[in-house]
Design a binder for these strands. Structure first.
Length: 882
RNA sequence: AGGCACGUAGCUCAGUGGGAGAGCACCACCUUGACACGGUGGGGGUCGGCGGUUCAAUCCCGCCCGUGCCUACCA
């Protein structure tokens, strides 16, 4: 590609983005070789679901990861950013089923194989779309290594892990109470069965004692489930019931004798303090039943009608059964009361049907033994969270961890590598499809139809993507990865499980740090959600403002511990900054036409060395901020430098020098412009890769390497204290004069004459032209003569600065200005005096603080005297002229 | 119910034990040869409320009010 001769008036983002991304890929700059000797830096992408396309939350997360990767690349590391996507079992299956429904078909119509093929087609389409979105964003992923959770290699890892854990006794099969949607005829995860408020009733029912008089009363919202009761439970410390524990009650309607048991899950404060226990139809009761070894009686069919265990109520649906049971109880005198009761009940996320807890056989992973080392890893700082407060979330979950139900009744996913023998009913669990039963040798084997929970394969992502279970160069080079950047809501589902699996199978944590990025909300503060249709497509944002502007904006907003409220207009600031940078570069290029890149370096002037030192400071600050994931601080440091120092000051100071007759001075300035602009581009590149590349390529004297192939500049020597003082004074004087102009209402076209005291000559003697240029003064001179009454006087950097316009028209404004300034001074002075007059302050405050306060007071007093004197002169002059 | 955040300028948000900042918006002036997606200057805040610790609190502690989230769900 050829360099544009100069920069066009406007930056055209879209073509530049496409061009540079292509060029990066062509040059292979994102590929990380396992045998590269440079120190490695690695990140695995949180694999987006192939369910749909990415929203701004993904854009944020991937912008930040890209930022880190590009930053580390510029620091000379061998950076691997491992990309890929996740098959997202249930979500993807559901969206494809929805597609099918439009054709009037169900997955059952197609059959498992044909249905799975349909899902693969979907995956191909959306997987490609996601990659396109990431590339549009500028993501510097190593695409040669792109992975998908159902790739053969990753599927092999899944099988290997399942088989090993099974034989270690960490995976088992057991009956469990699952959330079942009777309408969808499928198991739901907790996430898919959100609680919704329901206006129900609380029924108080009398359970007579089996051996003697009296009864225990219990309360329930679902009276029909009493048909499956196998106990009544009370709290072990509840004195009211202690004498009843171990005795039996007679179950109303069915007459079965069931025991009274004690369990701590019972809240003595609620209702009667006694609760019916239905292990087959309530999660709490199920746990209780397990603890106490109670039987489970399932009274419900999968379609939510009652089964034969319900005796006379068989065949009724839940609502009918409730009505019948309540009537019968009432008739039998066992209904002790009914009252309204609002409560929260899980509903199917997709069809709103009331979810029923249902007993079924599932595969489980035993979590305690895996959680212990993972807990220790975070406690001992081998994995660190940013912000650190998320560690509490992690601890809380890990300390209360329960076994993980890993099987799903789905078709899309990793089919469980377990075969049941038709002859002996035993399970054979092996990595490769078996010929015969491991127990009896029979060849009558049938593979488990369930698939694994999606998170099972996601948990292996940091090492399965690098070729595990083989011992690969990639694993040795890039595992553990440096950081995982992700959202807080999957700390349990994903982060914790990766740490457990990484420790168990690799013997090492999967990442040293976890960065939890902010949540992106819409302008109304709502969480972005694909399913609810709330969300902005990053491609839409980039089409309007450009990828760089969007990236910059997102990074600038990524403060620790707070969500991002995102409206389209938010990006306008980012775009303005991109444009500002672009125009600064245009200015430079307009003045670099005659610069011979091979010319020897001229000695630098003060401004040149100053701006260079400011660049170094900004780069250092940005680097320090990025080290601790303070992206907004890094952005802010670079922004302030680029706009507030380079554009506002250096470029303005450089203008006279560029017009100067002195060729050496001109050349020094040109060389500094190139040097500092290049450094700025490198510094900004991680945030805005495209525009920096575009400008960099247009700068003279580059060696054909792109920004992406460069390194951060080594810091130059810093300014000495005298030079620093000169710069600070210079800028303060200019600002002071501008302020006077503004406050007196002097139009920019009006000539002013400036006078500085001769004492300022040492610092400012070389800079009169600059002062004149930046204040639009006709003349700047040194003199200690008493200023004429019509001169405006201000103080800057410890010097008195006179501004003269040549007439007395502004005397009134000047008087008001001085009065206001004096008022402010008095206020500051009284604060300082109040402190210094307090003996406790002198005695107890740090010495430096006291000294600073004294200096401040002295300065304020001197300034006050100077301004008072001026004010008196003006008052006198006005009095005499009136 | 428990836990965790948050409450700072009109808006969106940074920030620190020593009288508070940015961007946008607002006001005034400026079509100056990089840039009006711009320049120069300016106005604007009891830093949610009440107590406490401290020489000093917007910052640390307690309580309260408001908002959001997470976890557990009371059958």
């Amino acid at each position: 590609m050829s360099a544009p001769p100069s920069l066009p008036k406007r930056f055209e983002a879209a073509p530049a983005e496409a061009r540079w991304y292509r060029e990066w890929l062509a040059r292979g700059v994102f590929h990380a070789a396992a045998d590269d000797p440079r120190p490695p830096y690695s990140i695995v992408i949180p694999p987006p679901n192939v369910t749909g396309s990415l929203h701004l939350g993904h854009a944020l997360n991937n912008t930040l990861q890209d930022l880190l990767c590009r930053h580390e690349r510029l620091r000379g590391r061998n950076v691997l950013w491992m990309p890929g996507t996740d098959h997202a079992g249930i979500s993807t299956q559901v969206v494809v089923e929805r597609e099918l429904k439009k054709e009037g078909k169900t997955r059952q119509d197609l059959g498992r194989e044909a249905f799975v093929n349909r899902v693969w087609e979907w995956k191909a389409r959306y997987g490609a779309r996601i990659v396109a979105q990431l590339q549009a964003l500028g993501a510097s992923c190593d695409w040669e290594r792109e992975r998908f959770t159902m790739d053969p290699g990753l599927s092999r890892a899944v099988r290997e892990v399942f088989v090993r854990l099974y034989h270690e006794g960490l995976i088992y099969r057991s009956e469990y109470l699952v959330s079942w949607c009777p309408r969808c005829a499928t198991v739901l995860s907790d996430l898919e069965s959100p609680f919704q408020p329901v206006a129900g009733k609380l029924y108080r029912i009398r359970y007579p004692l089996a051996d003697g008089d009296g009864a225990i009363e219990v309360e329930t919202t679902r009276p029909e489930t009493l048909l499956g009761d196998t106990a009544v439970a009370v709290h072990p410390d509840d004195a009211r019931f202690r004498h009843l524990v171990g005795r039996h009650v007679r179950l109303p309607l069915l007459g079965r004798e069931i025991p009274v048991v004690a369990d701590r899950f019972v809240d003595p404060e609620f209702g009667t303090g006694a609760v019916k226990v239905t292990p087959a139809h309530d999660p709490n009761d199920f746990e209780c039943g397990r603890r106490l070894g109670l039987p489970s009686i399932n009274v419900m069919n999968p379609d939510a009608t009652l089964n034969a265990n319900a005796g006379p109520y068989e065949g009724l649906d839940v609502a009918q059964a409730r009505k019948a049971v309540v009537e019968d109880l009432d008739r039998g005198g066992l209904l002790a009361g009914v009252k309204d009761h609002e409560h929260e009940v899980p509903h199917c996320d997709r069809c709103e049907t009331l979810v029923q807890p249902l007993l079924s056989e599932q595969w489980f992973m035993r979590m305690k033994p895996l959680a212990e080392p993972a807990l220790a890893a975070v406690r001992e700082g081998r994995v660190r969270f940013h912000p650190k407060s998320w560690e509490n979330t992690y601890y809380h979950w890990m300390e209360n961890i329960r076994d993980w139900a890993i099987s799903r009744q789905l078709w899309w996913g990793h089919r469980i590598p377990a075969w049941r023998c038709g002859a002996c009913s035993e399970w054979t669990v092996v990595a490769d499809d078996p010929e015969r039963c491991a127990h009896c040798g029979s060849s009558d084997l049938a593979q488990e139809t369930d698939v694994l929970d999606t998170w099972f394969s996601s948990a292996l992502w940091p090492f399965s993507t690098m070729g595990w279970p083989d011992d690969t160069p990639e694993l040795r080079r890039f595992y553990p990865t440096n950081v995982l950047s992700t959202a807080f809501d999957i700390i349990f589902f994903w982060v914790a499980r990766m740490i457990m699996m990484g420790l168990h199978f690799m013997g090492e944590v999967p990442f040293r740090e976890v960065y939890i990025h902010p949540l992106v909300r819409d302008e109304k503060g709502r969480k972005m959600s694909k399913s609810k249709g709330i969300g902005t497509d990053p491609l839409d944002v980039m089409a309007i403002y450009g990828a760089d502007a969007m990236r910059w904006t997102l990074a600038s907003l990524a403060a620790q511990g707070r969500d991002i409220r995102f409206g389209m207009e938010t990006v306008e600031g980012g775009r303005a900054f991109v444009t500002k940078l672009w125009n600064a570069a245009r200015f430079a290029l307009l003045n670099l036409g005659d610069l011979d890149p091979a010319a020897p370096r001229e000695p630098r002037g003060l401004y040149d060395r100053w701006i260079r030192s400011r660049l170094d400071a900004a780069l250092a600050e940005a680097h320090a901020a990025l080290e601790v994931y303070r992206f907004n601080d890094a952005a802010s440091a670079l922004y302030q430098f680029c706009w507030g120092e380079l554009c506002d000051w250096y470029i303005e100071l450089a203008k006279p020098a560029l017009q100067a007759a002195d060729a050496k001075q001109r050349r020094a300035t040109q060389q500094t412009l190139v040097e500092v602009l290049s450094g700025t581009l490198v510094g900004l590149h991680p945030f805005m890769p495209f525009v920096t590349e575009e400008i960099f390529y247009a700068l003279p004297g580059h060696d054909g390497r792109l920004v992406v192939e460069h390194a951060y500049p080594e810091p130059a020597s810093a300014l000495d204290p005298v030079e620093t003082a000169a710069m600070e004074t210079l800028l303060a004087v200019i600002a002071a004069v501008r302020r006077v102009r503004g406050e007196l209402g002097l139009p920019p076209s009006l000539d002013v004459h400036l006078t500085l005291p001769t004492a300022a000559r040492a610092l400012l003697g070389d800079h009169l032209a600059s002062i004149a240029s930046l204040t639009r003064a006709a003349e700047v001179r040194f003199s200690d003569a008493e200023p004429p009454v019509e001169a405006a006087v201000t103080l800057a950097g410890g010097f008195r600065v006179q501004v003269e316009v040549g007439d007395k028209k502004h005397l009134g404004e000047e008087r008001r200005r001085l009065e206001k300034a004096l008022e402010m001074l008095e206020k500051d002075l009284s604060f300082a005096s109040k402190k210094l007059d307090n003996p406790d302050f002198i005695a107890r405050a740090k010495e430096a603080v006291v000294a600073a306060e004294r200096t401040k007071r002295e300065r304020l007093v001197a300034e006050r005297e100077a301004l008072r004197e001026r004010l008196e002169r003006i008052v006198a002059a006005q009095g005499s002229s009136a």
